[in-house]
Design a protein around this nucleic acid. Sequence first.
DNA 1: GTGAAAGCGCTAACAA
DNA 2: TTGTTAGCGCTTTCAC
Lengths: 337, 337
Amino acid sequence: MVTLAEVAQHAGVSASTVSYVLSGKRTISAVTKQRVERSIQELGYHPNAGARALASSRSNIIALMMPLRTDMYVPVMMEIAIAVATHAREHGFDVLMLTGEEGPAAVQRVVGSGLADAIILMDVELDDARLPLLRASGRPAVLIGLPAEPGGLTCVDLDFAEAGALCATHLAGLGHRDIVVIGEAPAVYERKTGFAERTIEGLRGRAQELGLRVLHRPCEGSYAAVAGALGQVFTERPGVTGFVVQNEQALEPLLSLLRQDRRAIPEDISVVAVCPEQVALQGSIRLTSVTIPAREMARQAVERLVAKIAGESQGEVFLLEPELVARASSGPAPAGG
Amino acid sequence: MVTLAEVAQHAGVSASTVSYVLSGKRTISAVTKQRVERSIQELGYHPNAGARALASSRSNIIALMMPLRTDMYVPVMMEIAIAVATHAREHGFDVLMLTGEEGPAAVQRVVGSGLADAIILMDVELDDARLPLLRASGRPAVLIGLPAEPGGLTCVDLDFAEAGALCATHLAGLGHRDIVVIGEAPAVYERKTGFAERTIEGLRGRAQELGLRVLHRPCEGSYAAVAGALGQVFTERPGVTGFVVQNEQALEPLLSLLRQDRRAIPEDISVVAVCPEQVALQGSIRLTSVTIPAREMARQAVERLVAKIAGESQGEVFLLEPELVARASSGPAPAGG
DNA sequence: GTGAAAGCGCTAACAA
DNA sequence: TTGTTAGCGCTTTCAC
């Protein structure tokens, strides 16, 4: 293994000079710099991560804590994780992947040991057990999601209330009066992550202003569950003309069932989805949707975190402005109402 | 920050004793051990990861290199990643997530710096640029996937050839004579990851033995692409009665289109999928399938890697035996042929 | 069964 | 602009 000392010797300079060439924390003459860089090349030197972390008390690692449930919401999570890793690298950080299984203790472990300089928490619950530990640790942290009490922590999330409101506005603008929301699985609401609730609240508020009638149905993503929900919905609300769907898994079953039921989209029924753009585009019909900007959330989370590590930022809540893109799945409410 | 020295002082023992209590690498009297453990508790001590890595030249970190493409094959990748992290923790390792963007250089970086003790590579291509670097580094590594030249490297993968063969056997056993394979997107074949090719080869070989006629169609996962492929297929092979699908995305569109086409499953058409179990179970019909055992692959990869880190294992190829589970989507070939 | 002490490879004062 | 040096907190050999 090549060490900094060997590089120094090979280049005929002191160890600190090599270190400073690497870090750029002090001005080095062009010649010296070149000599050192050449030696680094020739010897194939890689700074030892452990030694560096010990001496500088910075590991240049960000911990990313994933959700507890593997099955849920998967594409978004994956997209966020990859984007976090990518942006972290741009700032010289690597990403340590923590799963939920270890529980809140994982926070203490990686932070207490100095393994990670900072943490990003995904899938934050309203009253998340990890938050007290995080606050106590004093380490920089960013939450992707919005707990009930952000108090001092930095949060990045989509403004789901506004997302819901946008759906209501869009459908109302097209003349719909009676709409149904197919929501996430009941388990999601039970876990109290908040985003699903915020969506429906925002939607309900706007619906009231606009005189829309709303029925909300949490629903599993399986074909059978969607079929069941749909059956009930059409019984309870025969006049429904608009669907808002916040449940990736339920989307294809829903479209498929409506088709079987000879209800044309968007002529008879309009559908608006809250989902990642990719999902809105890949199905049997291009869906009008409010995009969940996974990458942008990841980017912001990393930027905020890096700023905090550098001591340049305080706890704040950043809600991304949602955008509704009208595509082929929504249109004017049918005349007969 | 609490250090080992402080714990030692608090417990009235030497630093090395505390270290040995922690590592268990030498016998300690019960009393001493208890005293030390109490001090650790009381002071809230966490061993410093950097110092530990420096002194022991072991980081207790495994690097997991994800695929280059975010969009492809996502649920399986996510499942593997989570399972790798979980099993790694069981062996005291954390997992560093590397994305493909950094390219093969990432291998050198994490391994050269001692950041990671070992690497797991996902989404391995037949002629993967990372492999020479990996071999040169001499670090323990496990590939999930099977390159053209494993030479000395440990590989874990599903025996896709056998998976393909199982599909042929199953359909032949039900009396089908004319089958179509809906494969992965052309891009997957172009990338030469090999698994898709191995499947079709295994299937073709068995099909020949059993007198099956086979048409293979790579296909994008979009609804439109599947519709196009299906149209062609029924023109070229009007007598087809069996489909084998190795393309998660294409599954729902296919089922939906067959339904629209008034072809009943399994009465008119049998469908066998190669996919994760979850995918086979969640759709509109429970699919006969060969399971892609993501978790098992992850588990094996970690076990092999840990063995290699401990110096107990050499390079070997482990192909997991596939299993076909007959469910509702396959049945006897229709009588009329 | 326990302690003393020499590093591990690097960073960052302090000096020049 | 560069060099000298004292640690960073831990592991592990050597000694008892």
